[in-house]
Design a binder for these strands. Structure first.
Length: 544
RNA sequence: UGGGGUGUCGCCAAGCGGUAAGGCACUGGGUUUUGAUCCCAGCAUGCGCAGGUUCGAAUCCUGCCACCCCAGCCA
């Protein structure tokens, strides 16, 4: 599990290092815009950037790309810091914001104007779009393209001074309106926004655009490898153009990799935001969400997310990863670490007719393979609950649980036999009357009985009533229809049960458990007496 | 009909001219007081397609085809 990753980016970095192309160590950055919560797609980028720096002995900046105050907030900033840290990464003193560089950015823009490489354009947004041309036809020059440097300098200074309303003017790079790459058709690099910024307040009314900002921040921070997703490939010429046309002594290479796509969910902040706003989920941390906060609340360990990111690899292929891989990674971590416990989701009362009135206390290991977790006490008595699903009046062939006249072992307890099925007036089973075999006690069984199976149970008197929430895919289809999210939602993405957990689990401080035969569960971080199912156990039982 | 990318098993992914790694999933079998875990075995005569170069091609060349991204004063 510790083989070194050898994706194309790491190969490239290795090569740069070998050729002495990188002075000092490797420096990367994770640059989220604080306009939403981080999701597992961001985790891929976080693991890459922080992972690479760690492997090659460098460091990573956590840089907030906060150039669009209209969409950003401090809540998002805080959630992002929390999530990156929870994932296990430390940016140390390298916490920055694009807004930290607003003054320098402004000066570089002035420099571009002085070099005749940028101009103030007074066309409306509509007009700029119309003159940009199409994918197959070149655009046409703005009538303001030939403004004098002096006029541009004056106008830009007045833009900054707040003399104009939003949209009245923009600053554009003067590149090539006929370029086959539309990003190079005199892109807007500054716009006027009379909007309060969460960090700089009302100090600025002109804000730099991503394409102008990102490359400069990368250069100022000495980022040796600027890693981003594929959709920015067409922006790379612009990234390079900006750095080539200002007086700056560092020029990071931009390297793109494919973003993560996961089956049965969506990975766009816009859509996730919409689901939160529409209240189809309880919030950004709803356990069904692909957000880091949602996964955490569902009980997914950070180590599982890191392992997942490592297993999917880094390439330029547009893949669609199956949820089964994430589930595998989660189970693998929890299998080793989660203490075992018993819970009954859908209780069916069982009375042990030949068991004495006084109960007894049994002992069970918290983990079958990890003795370090120790043991817990398990109370056993005449009145128990078993899982309704574990009893069948007419068992299908291959059924290994309880049926009339049949034997089954109660895990860690005794072997029982079902003598009588009690039903109510509607014919619904309300109780099972069983006998137990005193000499079949777990660990000291001399009964010679060989039941077909083992089932879980809880003691009726001491078990704690709890709410159990079982989660499934948020969307029914592997690739949900993004145009109709509402009807693409899986109606059974969360199913709630009122069940029980054994007393030792209820009184424990531990957060994650494997409820035997049911799955891995985690205590909900907000709601008392509530457990979220993190993932089911693997199940090779094929009925029929 | 412009530009930029990508095509290796159901999914992810190694491979970088010397004769197809690995993981997930799946299928068998063994162990098991979780139908779990664990263990063992199986799972691409073929790398989008068609040609070509070569003693030898998934790897090089040519031509097709398919899919993804781009026309925000978003990032």
């Amino acid at each position: 599990m510790s083989e070194e990753a050898t994706d194309f980016i790491r190969q490239r970095i290795r090569q740069d290092l070998d050729q002495g192309a990188v002075e000092g160590g490797v420096v990367t950055r994770f640059p989220p815009e604080p306009n939403g919560y981080l999701h597992i797609g961001h985790a891929k980028s976080i693991c890459l950037n922080f992972g690479v720096a760690r492997e090659f002995g460098g460091y990573t900046y956590l840089r907030f790309d906060d150039t669009n105050p209209a969409k950003e907030s401090d809540e998002y900033v805080e959630s992002i810091k929390r999530d990156v840290a929870w994932l296990g990464y430390d940016w140390g003193s390298h916490l920055t914001h694009a807004s930290d560089y607003f003054d320098q950015l402004y000066n570089f823009a002035v420099e571009l104007i002085e070099r005749g490489k940028a101009f103030v354009c007074s066309l409306s947004g509509e007009e700029i779009r119309a003159s940009r041309g199409t994918l197959t036809e070149p655009g046409t020059d703005s009538p303001y393209r030939s403004r004098s440097i002096e006029e541009n300098l004056d106008l830009f200074a007045r833009m900054k001074a707040g003399e104009f309303a939003d949209g009245e003017h923009v600053l554009r790079a003067k590149i090539d309106m006929a370029s086959a790459n539309v990003n190079l058709r005199d892109p807007v690099i500054y716009r006027i926004r009379h909007v309060e910024h969460q960090r700089t307040g009302d100090r600025w009314v002109v804000y730099p655009m991503y394409d102008f900002t990102h490359c400069i921040c990368d250069a100022l921070e000495g980022i040796t490898h600027s890693l981003c997703t594929l959709e920015f490939q067409d922006h790379r010429p612009l990234y390079d153009w900006v750095l080539d046309n200002i007086n700056i002594n560092f020029h990071p290479p931009q390297i793109e990799f494919s973003r993560l796509a996961l089956e049965h969910t969506v990975m766009s902040k816009r859509l996730l935001n919409q689901m939160v706003d529409d209240a189809v989920v309880s919030g950004w941390d709803d356990p069904r969400m692909p957000t880091i906060a949602g996964l955490r609340r569902r009980g997914v360990p950070a180590a599982a997310i890191r392992d997942f990111c490592k297993r999917i690899g880094i390439t330029k292929q547009d893949g669609l990863v199956e949820m089964a891989l994430l589930d595998f990674c989660i189970r693998q971590v929890l299998e080793k670490s989660a203490p075992r416990g018993m819970s009954v989701l859908d209780p069916l009362p069982v009375t042990l007719t030949n068991y004495p009135d006084d109960g007894e206390t049994l002992e069970a290991a918290w983990h079958p393979q990890n003795a370090e977790l120790g043991n817990r006490a398990l109370s056993f008595s005449r009145q128990l609950y078993i899982e309704r699903e574990d009893f069948s009046e007419e068992p299908p062939k291959g059924f290994k649980r309880l049926s009339p006249g049949g034997l089954v072992r109660l895990r860690y307890g005794f072997i029982i036999q079902c003598d009588e099925v009690i039903k109510d007036a509607d014919g619904a089973i309300v109780e099972l009357r069983c006998r137990y075999f005193p000499e079949s006690k777990s660990g000291s069984d001399t009964s010679g009985l060989k039941p077909k199976g083992v089932i879980h149970w809880v003691d009726a008197a001491s078990a704690q009533p709890v709410t159990l929430r079982l989660y499934q895919q948020l969307f029914t289809d592997p690739v949900p229809d993004l145009d109709d999210l509402a009807s693409a939602l899986n109606p059974d993405s969360v199913v709630e049960f009122s069940g029980f957990v054994e007393a030792a689990v209820a009184s424990s401080e531990m957060q994650h458990f494997q409820f035997e035969r049911l799955g891995y569960y985690a205590r909900d971080s907000e709601l008392a007496d509530t457990f979220n199912r993190t993932v089911t156990l693997r199940d090779s039982y094929k009925p029929g």
